[in-house]
């Protein structure tokens, strides 16, 4: 019964992550997008903490704390400041319409489930479901990066992709803390670099639409 409960809760949390990824896909306002992203980070932290509890791996609490602190609070706040300062909080941009994006997202989730069922047929069901959800989150994050034009939402897509990686990493037993911390820090560094680039792009082109970059390179789409 204990096993059943722990399995269900883990399933619920991981499933919510996928759901929030879908929500990210159809957000068309910057600030709403950031809010949803923060929510995803909070759910991720909860999921990781639950994994720490059922795996009896205290170092995972650390990972949960990092996720909550950085991705749930610090990064969304910083991004919100950037958005405000750049004055793009009203901007809407998608390359592909919402409906095709959502359909593609569903296909991706189905694909990742099929793949995981085949590949990890021998693994225990908990780890397998976890991996399937994690892969879905990664793919949805990538899909978001592909379908958006604004640099800020690409950053969000990238961060959400990384959430999927953390979910996968914590689902697997015995992943050393060092790996998780280094992943977290590399994401942080990436965020800083991208943030700097964002302001540079803004200064130069008066916009964070990445197509401005392409125009600057003298290309047509």
């Amino acid at each position: 019964m204990q096993h059943g409960l722990s399995f269900d809760v883990a399933h619920l949390l991981a499933g919510s992550l996928v759901l929030i990824s879908f929500m990210l896909l159809y957000q068309d306002r910057m600030l709403a997008l950031l809010n949803v992203f923060a929510a995803q980070a909070v759910v991720l932290a909860a999921s990781v903490a639950w994994q720490a509890h059922i795996q009896e791996a205290p170092h995972l609490y650390m990972t949960a704390a990092i996720a909550l602190l950085f991705k749930g609070v610090a990064i969304p706040m910083a991004l919100r400041r950037i958005v405000r300062r750049l004055g793009i909080h009203r901007e809407i941009e998608t390359v592909v319409g919402v409906v095709p994006t959502m359909l593609a997202g569903m296909a991706l989730v189905a694909l990742s489930l099929v793949v995981m069922l085949r590949v990890a047929a021998a693994a225990n069901p908990l780890a397998r479901e976890d991996l399937a959800f994690a892969l879905s989150v990664v793919l949805l994050g990538l899909l978001m990066m592909v379908t958006r034009r604004n640099a800020v939402s690409q950053v969000v897509g990238f961060m959400s992709l990384e959430n999927g990686l953390i979910l996968a990493a914590t689902g697997a037993k015995g992943m050393p803390l060092v790996v998780e911390i280094s992943v977290a820090f590399s994401i942080l560094i990436a965020f800083i670099v991208i943030g700097i680039f964002l302001s540079r792009i803004r200064e130069r082109f008066d916009s964070v639409d990445i197509e401005a970059l392409d125009r600057a390179r003298g290309e047509r789409r």
């Binding site: 694909l111 099929v114 793949v115 793919l139 990538l142 592909v146 970059l213 390179r217």
Partner: peptide, 24 residues
């Protein structure tokens, strides 16, 4: 050599999805 950033991302994405499809 001369794709847009988004196209590069799309390329990576398409490659990943294709490989997963092959696996499936």
């Amino acid at each position: 050599q001369f794709l847009t950033i988004r196209r590069y991302l799309t390329l990576v994405f398409a490659a990943l999805v294709t490989l997963l499809l092959v696996l499936a």
